[in-house]
């Protein structure tokens, strides 16, 4: 088993919680893990990314080589495009479709969508709207993770169990909201 994942978004959008859940699930499976994170200056509203490598064999590089990522999970559509050079030809993009506009020169959404055209496997949807509709407004990032689950190499049971362990101390309501979010997201993926 080998899975190279790029997580991205804008500082403060919660990509590190997605990484935490995947890392926890992979640890429980006894997989090897390397997860490079961004700390410091760019966390202040700038573009942030984290790479996660999971494998049943020991992993050498902390960074994912270009053209090798199996999936890009993005909390923001333009940010997903930033990492296209790292995606495999048959890799997946799982992204929120809601732009986070905190720069004056944010591109037209039509241009952003057109740029996805050359990528074979793209899942993009409004995770925030879905979170609101299901009364779990703080779990949008777990909806996104759910939508990526079928291509991560981890089972939904493994992710659910990781959510229980990571969010357990915050109480049953938080755990249930996040497990519900994973299921909602999973249903969006065409291969669920």
């Amino acid at each position: 088993m080998k899975s190279d994942i790029i997580l991205c978004g804008v500082g403060g959008q919660g990509i590190l919680s997605i990484a935490t859940i995947i890392g926890e699930a992979a640890m429980a499976e006894g997989l090897y893990i390397k997860q490079a994170e961004v700390h410091g200056m760019s966390q202040r509203g700038g573009d942030v990314q984290s790479t996660l490598r999971l494998s049943s064999e020991p992993i050498c590089s902390d960074l994912v080589p270009r053209g090798a990522a199996d999936v890009i999970i993005s909390m923001e559509p333009m940010e997903a495009l930033r990492y296209l050079p790292y995606l495999r030809e048959d890799g997946w993009i799982i992204t929120s479709s809601v732009p986070f506009v905190n720069i004056p020169n944010y591109p037209e959404m039509a241009a952003v969508e057109a740029a996805f055209a050359g990528v074979r496997h793209v899942v993009h949807f409004d995770i925030e709207q879905m979170a609101k509709e299901h009364a779990i407004p703080r779990s949008a990032n777990m909806i996104l993770l759910g939508a990526a689950q079928p291509v991560l190499g981890l089972s939904s049971e493994q992710l659910d169990a990781a959510v229980r362990r990571v969010f357990g101390r915050k109480g049953e309501a938080v755990v249930e909201a996040n497990i519900k979010a994973l299921a909602l997201g999973r249903a969006v993926h065409p291969e669920h």
């Binding site: 202040r44 053209g67 090798a68 995606l87 495999r88 020169n105 591109p107 990528v119």
Partner: peptide
Amino acid sequence: HGLQDATIARAAEVVAPRPP
């Protein structure tokens, strides 16, 4: 085996820098 160069180039034209 990455995406085609044209796809990557098209995306690069759209992506704007997002400084902190």
